[in-house]
Measured scan of single mutants.
Amino acid sequence: AEKTGIVNVSSSLNAREGASTSSKVIGSLSGNTKVTIVGEEGAFYKIEYKGSHGYVAKEYIKDIKDE
């Protein structure tokens, strides 16, 4: 099942092309942005936001229960 997560940073969080800190940054998400978690790979979540996919470090995403 898809989960919703909240970007848990004070400034912004980089979204990357792949599940690695050396992957190209494809965008950034500001704190408290809601994202859909579609998968996980190592220390990263694969997320969907406004129709695009990217990878973000798990430690900066807070899971919330689907309402």
Rank of each mutant, 00 (worst) to 15 (best):
Gly42His: 03
Val35Leu: 03
Gly54Met: 13
Gly31Ala: 14
His53Ile: 14
Glu59His: 08
Ala43Val: 08
Thr4Phe: 13
Gly31Glu: 09
Asn8Asp: 10
Ser22Ile: 08
Val56Lys: 00
Glu41Val: 10
Ala19Ile: 06
Thr33Leu: 06
Val38Leu: 12
Ser30Leu: 14
Lys34Thr: 10
Lys50Tyr: 11
Glu40Arg: 01
Asn32Gly: 15
Tyr60Met: 07
Ile64Arg: 02
Tyr55Trp: 12
Tyr60Gln: 06
Ala1Thr: 13
Ile47Arg: 00
His53Val: 13
Gly54His: 04
Glu48Asp: 07
Gly39Lys: 02
Ile47Lys: 01
Lys50Leu: 12
Tyr45Phe: 09
Ser23Gly: 04
Val35Phe: 02
Ile26Asn: 03
Val9Asp: 06
Ile47Val: 06
Gly51Ala: 05
Gly42Asn: 06
Glu59Trp: 08
Ser23Thr: 06
Ser11Lys: 10
Gly39Glu: 04
Lys46Val: 09
Ser52Leu: 14
Lys46Phe: 05
Lys62Ile: 14
Val9Gln: 07
Val25Tyr: 05
Gly51Phe: 04
Lys3Tyr: 10
Ile47Leu: 02
Ile26Gly: 01
Gly31Asp: 11
Val56Leu: 04
Glu48Met: 13
Lys65Gln: 13
Val56Pro: 00
Phe44Tyr: 12
Ser20Gln: 06
Val56Asn: 00
Val38Ile: 14
Gly42Glu: 07
Ser23Leu: 04
Ser20Leu: 06
Val25Phe: 06
Ser30Pro: 15
Gly27Ser: 04
Tyr49Leu: 08
Leu29His: 02
Ser28Phe: 10
Ser30Tyr: 10
Val38Asn: 01
Asn32Pro: 05
Leu13Tyr: 04
Gly5Ala: 05
Glu59Gln: 10
Tyr49Gly: 00
Ile47Ser: 00
Glu17Gln: 08
Tyr45Ala: 02
Arg16Asp: 03
Arg16Cys: 10
Val38Lys: 04
Ala15His: 04
Glu40Asp: 06
Ser52Arg: 11
Gly27Val: 08
Ile61Ala: 02
Glu17His: 05
Lys65Trp: 11
Gly39Phe: 02
Ile6Lys: 05
Lys62Pro: 01
Ile6Leu: 08
Tyr45Cys: 05
Asp66His: 11
Ile37Gln: 01
Lys24Thr: 07
Glu40Met: 07
Gly31Val: 10
His53Asp: 04
His53Trp: 14
His53Leu: 10
Gly54Arg: 03
His53Met: 09
Tyr49Asn: 01
Ile61Cys: 04
Ala43Lys: 13
Gly5Thr: 03
Lys50Ile: 05
Glu41Phe: 07
Ile64Ala: 10
Ile64Cys: 11
Ile47Gly: 00
Ala19Gln: 03
Ile37Glu: 00
Gly18Asp: 11
Phe44Val: 01
Ala57Asp: 11
Ile37Cys: 04
Ser10His: 10
Lys46Ala: 04
Ile61Asn: 00
Lys46Cys: 09
Glu2Asp: 09
Asn14His: 13
Ala1Gln: 13
Glu59Val: 11
Glu17Leu: 05
Tyr55Arg: 00
Thr21His: 14
Val38Cys: 09
Tyr60Phe: 14
Ser30Gln: 14
Gly54Pro: 01
Gly5Lys: 02
Ile64Asp: 06
Lys58Ser: 03
Val9Cys: 15
Gly51Leu: 04
Tyr49Ile: 08
Glu40Trp: 04
Lys58Leu: 04
Ser10Met: 11
Lys3Val: 08
Ile6Trp: 12
Gly18Ala: 14
Gly51Asp: 09
Lys34Pro: 07
Tyr45Trp: 13
Tyr45Leu: 06
Gly18Trp: 12
Lys58Cys: 05
Lys24Gly: 06
Lys34Phe: 10
Phe44Ser: 01
